[in-house]
């Protein structure tokens, strides 16, 4: 099976006054058509910037400095602006974290959906309205025909995010990058949207990259997980493998800090310390300063080793014989 998306050694750096911030530093991932993968990590791990880099939406001073993004056989890094624009929204779409910030507050839902449609085709008013209503119904918005004339502030947070998802799905893209789309929502709404996204993706054969800091939402949705830390993928594998037998100490730490896995009444286990500065990272493994298993060898950068989509970037992976 040929991959829909192949990201190789992608690096996106931000030239700031205090130095170069290596937000993404050598990410490699691939995605089959219709596949759902989770990109997990804490704030500042580079997961969102990875998503933006795939769409070529990195704002200055950020820049893709290295690597390649091949999508449907085309190299996207260095693609002329116009061609990239015509892919965005049509073949690759994106959903953002905060729906109250992404929708334009002064345009009706219909107007915003029409702009997204008109970006890629000439479409009459009536046809656009019909398409918009149809897709709103599909993402679970009741009374879609009437909702089209609403403004974002007249909808609840969950409804707004459904509208944003509808806009992303409007042109039937092959890939949707979802940047923490349920983080800002109630838990009950989260679950609904997760279930709907999963069935929508399955129905339409759309591949998803689900970016989240929340391992439990990702595990409910994705078939594979990539764990990111300080701009690099530190562990990847199927959901089952990563959750039941994590090999990187960081993944282990993330799992241990999940409330659902903790014994009631006991303090949650935290990962000590904070993520290192991305403009001046420590030499070698970026997690070493926080790692209970670190040894002298960890001052050298470990490679991502493994086969068959199961890999770990660690000198002393868990589960190995000592």
């Amino acid at each position: 099976m040929t991959a829909l998306l192949e990201v190789r050694d992608l690096a996106t750096h931000f030239a700031t006054r205090t130095g170069v911030v290596r937000a993404v530093d050598g990410v490699t991932l691939s995605l089959a058509p219709g596949e759902i993968i989770g990109l997990v990590g804490e704030s500042g791990s580079g997961k969102s910037v990875t998503g933006f880099s795939i769409l070529g939406l990195v704002d200055p001073p950020g820049r893709i400095v290295r690597g390649s993004v091949r999508f449907e056989g085309r190299e996207l890094v260095g693609l002329p602006h116009g061609e990239l624009r015509s892919l965005r929204g049509r073949r690759i779409a994106m959903v953002f974290q905060d729906p109250s910030a992404t929708l334009n507050p002064v345009l009706t839902i219909l107007d915003q959906m029409r702009l997204a449609l008109e970006a890629h085709e000439r479409i009459g008013k009536a046809a656009a309205r019909a398409r918009a209503a149809e897709i709103l119904t599909r993402v679970g918005i009741p009374d879609a025909g009437r909702r089209l004339d609403s403004y974002p502030h007249q909808l609840s947070g969950g409804m707004r995010q459904r509208v944003a998802i509808a806009i992303a799905l409007l042109n039937r893209p092959a890939l949707v990058v979802c940047d923490e789309p349920t983080t800002a929502l109630d838990v009950s709404i989260q679950a609904q949207i997760l279930a709907e996204m999963k069935s929508l993706a399955r129905e339409s054969g759309t591949a998803l990259i689900w970016i989240s800091h929340d391992l439990s939402t990702v595990s409910a949705l994705a078939s594979r997980i990539l764990v990111m830390y300080a701009g690099r993928v530190v562990e990847e594998g199927t959901v089952g493998d990563v959750l039941s037998a994590p090999r990187h100490p960081y993944t282990r730490g993330l799992l241990d800090s999940l409330p659902s896995l903790a014994t009631p009444g006991q303090d949650l286990r935290q990962i000590p310390g904070a993520m290192p500065s991305l403009s001046d990272p420590p030499p070698g493994c970026a997690f070493a300063p926080r790692c209970a298993h670190a040894v002298d060898a960890c001052t050298a950068m470990p490679d991502l080793v493994g086969a068959g989509g199961r890999g770990v970037r660690c000198h002393r992976p868990l589960g190995d014989a000592p």
């Binding site: 624009r85 892919l87 929204g89 970006a119 890629h120 806009i167």
Partner: peptide, 13 residues
């Protein structure tokens, strides 16, 4: 802002 980023992600010129 995110509104502009979202419009760009939708492919608007």
């Amino acid at each position: 802002g995110d509104a502009v980023k979202f419009a760009r992600a939708a492919g608007e010129s």
